[in-house]
Amino acid sequence: MSETRTRPKRATIFDVAAEAGVSRGTVSRVLNGEPYVSQSAREAIEAAIDKVGYVRNTAARNLATQTSGAVALIVHEPHAVFVEDPNIGAILLGTNTALSDADYQLVSLIIDSDRDTDRVVSYLGGGFVDGAIVVSAREDDPITAALERLHIPTVLVGRPETAPELPSVSIDNRTAARDITERLVSTGRRRIGMIAAALDRDSGRDRLAGFRDALGDAFDDALVVEVPLYSFHSGQEGMRQLLRRAPDLDGIFAASDAIAAGAVDVLKEAGKRIPNDVGVVGFDDSAWALRCQPALSTVRQPAGALGARAAELVLDEIRRGERQRGVVLLPTEVVWRDSA
């Protein structure tokens, strides 16, 4: 025999007023933090709220104020990369901390397909968020175009050239890539290749440009393999391609630590000693860097601070109603370990 369950009746402000023996207006003033309520009435109302189980109707409040109290973190990466990449997790936590301090809710939205794009664009148009932070925005990204069209306060983590009107928080990927490649060259390596990733966005293109800057006339386009994602499996595939092209390679710059870890795995399978035969450097200083054996030389980027700063900028725009254009660049540093 089946049992029909009904949702319990939600306590209202009228229930609180009746229990406390005060007017609805007095309860409303307490809920809104307004003055001119006696201490005894305030205590009676707080006790009544606990007794009747009153929970403020956020949806009704948002409807009245035309705000949601939420900011979207939109991550334009496949599900596997979202789970695998420690930088995304650090950005998310940094964002959440800054939003939480401001009493805003974080809403995570992941773009893994065209269907996800359509769904997220529709969601954004429904007024469910007051602002948005976009991670890994591509060139001509329909998400950023929709955010601009909807006039939703938006900050990018990264700086795609096709969205110059939107403020962004980033690092100087080109200079950082140049610095670590020059350090690798200084160890005496002469046949240095690169596993380049994510060339459909600024970070990937700038890291390749920095690698080219460091090598100058010694740059060899045949020693660059392009892979789609900042992932371990992309690193494995890229390293296999490079070894087929140039088995005498003695140095590798991987566009991320996850890629470098995949490259190290393949090099060891091929009997290459690290760093004796091949020096390997990465980018991010994520958890992948310390999982590698030997530990990975890399570029440290402040992923958590990127998320926190992006949240501060979007909150500022929400409050002021004014967009601050431009790029905020956070510092990086080369961290040198035993892999090179």
Rank of each mutant, 00 (worst) to 15 (best):
D114I: 00
A132I: 10
E77F: 10
A102V: 08
A70G: 09
S108M: 13
I45G: 03
S100R: 15
L106K: 07
A48V: 03
Y54H: 05
T117F: 01
G127W: 00
G89V: 01
A72R: 01
N96T: 11
E43L: 11
S38E: 04
H79K: 08
T95H: 10
P35I: 01
A44R: 15
L93S: 14
N87R: 11
A132F: 05
N57P: 12
T58L: 12
Y54E: 02
Y104E: 10
T67Q: 14
F82M: 10
V107S: 00
D114N: 14
G94W: 05
G94R: 08
A64F: 06
D101C: 08
T65G: 04
I91T: 06
A132H: 04
A59G: 08
V75L: 10
G89P: 03
I45T: 03
V120C: 11
D103G: 08
I45V: 13
I49P: 14
A90W: 03
A48L: 04
S38I: 03
N62Q: 13
I110K: 10
V37I: 13
A41S: 15
V37E: 01
I88M: 11
S108F: 10
L63I: 12
L124G: 07
A59L: 12
A44W: 09
D116H: 12
G53P: 02
L124I: 08
Q105C: 09
G126A: 03
V52F: 04
G53A: 08
E34T: 11
D50N: 13
E77M: 09
I91P: 00
I110H: 09
T117A: 06
A64V: 14
I91R: 02
V120H: 07
A44H: 13
A44L: 12
L73D: 02
D50A: 15
Y123T: 15
A41K: 13
G33E: 04
V121K: 14
L106C: 12
G131W: 06
A48Q: 07
L106M: 15
G126E: 05
S100V: 03
P86F: 06
N87G: 12
G33H: 06
L109C: 13
F128A: 08
L99V: 09
V37S: 03
R61I: 14
I111T: 11
E34V: 08
L92K: 08
A41V: 06
D116I: 07
V83K: 07
E84F: 05
I88G: 06
G53R: 12
I49H: 07
P35L: 01
S108Q: 14
L63F: 15
G131Y: 00
E43S: 05
V75C: 05
E46W: 01
I111W: 00
E34R: 15
R61P: 11
S113P: 11
A47E: 02
A64I: 13
